[in-house]
Every structure is written in C-alpha cells, then in structure tokens.
Design a protein around this nucleic acid. Structure first.
Lengths: 313, 313
DNA sequence: CCCTCGCGATATCTCCGGCATATCGTTGGG
DNA sequence: CCCAACGATATGCCGGAGATATCGCGAGGG
C-alpha cells in the first residue's frame, strides 16, 4: 500500500465521482479506477459502492478513510516537523550554568531565545563549573556556562567562548563595620571570617591570600552566590564573589571592591564541537545577535574549528 | 512523498546502516541511497548523518521519523479497521423498539450480539411502533422493533420479519377482585376502568370492544408496558397488554387471560432493504443463530428481495 | 606512513507499473 | 426506446524504482 492509494481514496470520497476526483488529482479517470481497485484488492474489502450516478464509501471505506486521512496528515507533518527541527524551532536545549551567570548574561539571552523559539523545551540547571563540564562531555547537557577553561579528558572536544569577566568583590551586612566603605584591602580580608563558594575556594581564589591560605580553610562554604549574600547579610562573615553579584538587589547587604583588584577567571560558555543540534545552532545565533562581542569571538572559533556546529549561520 | 520513503527511512534508522537496511527491505543498497536522497531533497533537510561506520539520524531526521512511524502505523490500521468494519465488528447499530420487545426477544439477541461484537456501539431507544418506523425510514435507526406491519410512504423499502406473537392479557393488583382468576371475559373488561397503551388503544385494541369503544375512550393511557403494570398495581384499573407482559416479575400484580383469546399483531423487526451496513448483517446473523424460526423467515425474505442486505451470510 | 577494508555515492541499464487514450457495459432518465 | 453519464476494461507508452558494477573516502592495522 502506498500513500498514493490513500490520496486517491480520500479524493474519491470527497468528490464522490471518479471523473472529478481524477481531475482534482491531475490524472485521468481510468488509472484512478485501477488504483482504487488495487487498493480494494489489497485490503480485501470493497471500500466504495459504485452507483450509476456516483460513488459512496461503504462502512469499510469510512473506517479506512478515517485512518487514511490521519496517515496523510502525519506524512505532511513529518516534512514540516523535520524542517522546523532543522531550523532549531523545536526540540530541547539543556543548559547547565553557575549561579552568577544567571545574574548577567543568561537572563537576556534566555528571554530572547524563549521568545524566538517558543517550542523548544528549555532545561536549565544550576551546576558548578567542573560538574557542568563533565555533564556536557557525557552528553547530558548541550551548553555549559562556567568559570575558567574546561580541563581534563575530552576538554579539547569542547568549544569554549568567554562571555564576560569580573573581579572579586566583598559583600557584607549593612550592620558590618565595612558597610560604608568603597574598598577593602585584601590583607584586611585575610583577618575576617569569610564566606565563599566551594568552587572558588578550591581553585581561583587561592592566590588571593598568597602563601597563607588559612583564611580560606576556616571560611564558611556556600554552594551558590545567593547563599553567600544571605550568609553575609546575617553577619556570618564577609562574603566574597564575582562583581556581577552586585546585581543582587537586597536591602540588607553592601558591596565593596577588593584592592588590589583581583580578576576572576572569565565566565565562559562551552558546547561540544561535534554537536550538530540545530537548536544549539539557533541558540548560538541568538547569543550572537544579543551580544556582538561574544558573537565575533564565536565566529573566530567556529571558523578555526574543523567540524563546526551545524550551519551555525 | 510516498509510503516507500517512510518505510525506507524507518528501516535505515533502525539498522543505522544502508546495506543492512536495504537487505531488510529486500532491495539493494544503491536504490536505498537514492530514495533517501530523494526524500531529503523533498523535505529540504538532511535527515541522516553519514559517518564512515554507519548512519545516524539528525535532529530533523528524528522529528521526521516520529511522524513517519505513526503514519505507517495508521496505514496498517487503515486496512485492519476496514476489514473489521466489513465484518461488522466495529461501527454502530441503532435499534428502536417498543417496551414489550425488551421483555422477550431482545434481551437474548442483544446479549449475544454484545458478546460477539463488543466494539459495536449499540444505541437503544424505546419508541412506539409508528415512531420507530418513521425513524427507520429517516435513517435515524438501523433496526425498528414494533407491532404490526409498517404502513405509509416508504414502507415498501423496508424488510420486515415477524419475531413472535402474543395475545391479550389483563393485569390487576393483587388486591383486585380478579386477582385470583385465571381468565376474564372480554365483556367483563368493558365494564372495568382500563389502563392501556396509547398505541394499542388507537389501533389494534379497538375490535376487542366491538361496536362500543367507550371503555377505551375513558381508559387511562400509558406510554409503556411497565407503566401499565405499575398503574394496575396501585389499583388505577385493569391493565391490558401483550402476554409477554407476564415476564414482568412484580409481587403486587396478577395476570389473567382474556377470553375469548384475542391475538395481538405480531411483534416484528424491520430494517431498510437498501441498508448495506455490515453491522446490520452481523446483527441479523446473530438473530438467525439465536432464533432459527426467525432466521428461516429472514432467509426467505432476503432471497425474494432484489437488493438484499450486504452479504447477509 | 601506506595499505586495505568497509561504507555510502554514482553511473548505467533494465523492466515493472502507473498513466493516457480509446472503447465498452450498464444504468437511469426523458 | 434511445441517450447521456459513469465506471470498467483494453492497450501502448514512458518514467522511475531497482539491480549490477564501480568509485570515493575515511578509519584502522601492519
């Protein structure tokens, strides 16, 4: 049984007339008769009653036609859905990110992407940087936003673009003696009880305290940036975090720059170099449109990379 | 796009290998390549990524395949459903009947039909005989069970088989003076307040009272047989109805034969002579199996009728 | 580093079958 | 009783699906 048979049967049922149905199909009447006869032979039942002034479906024909119509509709949708999937308009995008990314670059990009690609199922997950990289390599994520270049096995299979840098700031309760100050010296910090993220403490924050990291070892650990702010607010210590933490709008905290200025590893976005997902491509093109600087960086990397992301526009 | 393309794409996705997929389809590898290429050209998107050691669907391919599989399933179901509809195993059967038919011939036939054709939607409706005949002719019913031959315009387009006769019986409250008697004389009845059905009073019951139908004109009218029994039970009068009314199992009523025995018009079943519904044919064959006497009658009528019911077995 | 093997693409031919043209059989309607 | 309309049948043609042979290419293995 071929789709042709379904189309012919549906047209015949619609026009109730071999000649007109054939005309509507762009063929002559005899082949329509032949094909319908062949269909009836294959199904094993008469699907149409031929009368002297037209054609009417039998009960078997009605049952057949119902299925035939949905089958044809599915076929049409197959093509449409494929095209939409290829344009990245449907599908799924799984993004893992560190908390601070949700403060600055992500909201704009995600909002725009949601609006331009409403039928893509977004799966968002807050993860620390190493976990995100691992999940990306395992194929559990499509995009990972973290801090610092991915390291370890497989990292060379990732394409990574910087999407923004920041420096270290301190956050304290409004009641804290530092609350009114614009800056705090790093040496002063070393004498305060600190609140830092697990991730930062174990990697990029260590150089800040030079040869003596005791301050870090006694620091309170928090998993994410909002917890750091919250702990600082209730005077658990001086919180340390990226400068985009200033975007947190709480009345009960104050921020101070750390002197000398201490640059944190850039925020970066990674994805698998072998990933051909059109949704990813669509996402990247939204990123490009939203942020020309990241976009041009992206273009460079993609141009350089051998197996670039599918038609990355 | 033809069903062939869908089958080929599905097979290719399943085997992830052109050669093996082609073998499973019973064709050689080159035509499979050609057809997949043609499909991709028509859809306008690459549906499969060819690697050096196999084939994997793209995102567009996955979207396409999902629709393709359901389309193919629908096509298979089309044939199956048509065959089942042709055997009368699916569809709808609308039966109109008078109340007394629900006492004797219908329960057995309907029960058996329900069991043998569980997926036929039965639509049952209690109607008086003339209304049933009209509904049948209007195409609102498939079968009408009533009393007395259908009359009026179009009646000759119906096939009608008798399915049982009965005679008149009286029903009275247990408290009624007649309650203990086996018979009641027709002349006695004429002096009693009566309870009869509208239908009966206006047609076949009139001869019972000879030239003076006054008894009927003052009779209480009821629409159906159970109401007659109920009114008799509460001593509203002497109920009159068909002898199968004896099948009503109420403790508060008693039945008496009417002397002389007064035959009522036969119960009969009618359907449109032009009706080709396989469900009707299936129903008739259940009737035949359930009741040989009616069956042979049916055979005679169908043999005699020019455009007999579709393949009435 | 080259060689070979495996896989998909391409080229060419064949032949089946879907389509067009012409004609027939049947059934209602005038 | 004839005619018009409709679907079925007969026949020839041609496109295209499929088979065979071959090529290009990339990945492993020696």
């Amino acid at each position: 049984m071929e789709a042709r048979h379904l189309r012919y049967a549906v047209a015949l049922a619609e026009h109730q007339h071999f000649g007109r149905a054939a005309a509507s199909l762009g063929i002559a009447q005899p082949p329509l008769s032949t094909q319908i006869a062949a269909l009836e032979r294959e199904v094993g039942e008469r699907l149409f009653d031929r009368t002297s002034r037209g054609v009417v479906p039998t009960a078997a024909g009605e049952a057949f036609l119902a299925r035939a119509r949905t089958a044809l509709a599915e076929m049409r949708l197959a093509g449409v859905d494929a095209a939409r999937a290829a344009r990245g308009e449907t599908g799924r995008l799984r993004i893992g990110f560190i908390g601070s990314a949700l403060l600055d670059p992500l909201p704009g990009v995600l909002g725009r992407f949601r609006r331009t690609h409403p039928e893509v199922r977004l799966s968002l997950q807050e993860l620390d940087s190493p976990t995100g990289t691992a999940a990306l390599l395992d194929g559990e994520l499509d995009v990972a936003v973290g801090r610092g270049s991915p390291r370890g096995a497989g990292a060379e299979d990732l394409i990574t673009v910087p999407i923004g840098g920041d420096h270290l700031v301190a956050v304290v309760s409004v009641a804290h003696p530092f609350a009114g100050r614009r800056t705090i010296d790093a040496e002063q910090l070393a004498r305060e009880p600190l609140v830092v993220s697990q991730d930062a403490a174990s990697s990029y924050l260590r150089p800040l305290f030079g040869p003596d990291p005791a301050a870090l070892e006694t620091a309170t650990m928090a998993r994410d940036i909002h917890t750091i702010a919250g702990l600082a607010a209730c005077s658990a210590g001086v919180g340390l975090g990226p400068s985009r933490m200033r975007l947190i709008t709480r009345k009960d905290i104050r921020f101070c720059d750390v002197t000398p200025r201490f640059r944190l590893p850039d925020l970066r976005m990674s994805f698998r170099a072998t990933d051909r997902s059109p949704v990813l491509a669509a996402y990247l093109s939204v990123v490009r449109a939203n942020c020309p600087k990241v976009g041009s960086h992206l273009d460079d990397l993609l141009a350089r990379h051998p197996s670039a992301v599918a038609g990355a526009l």
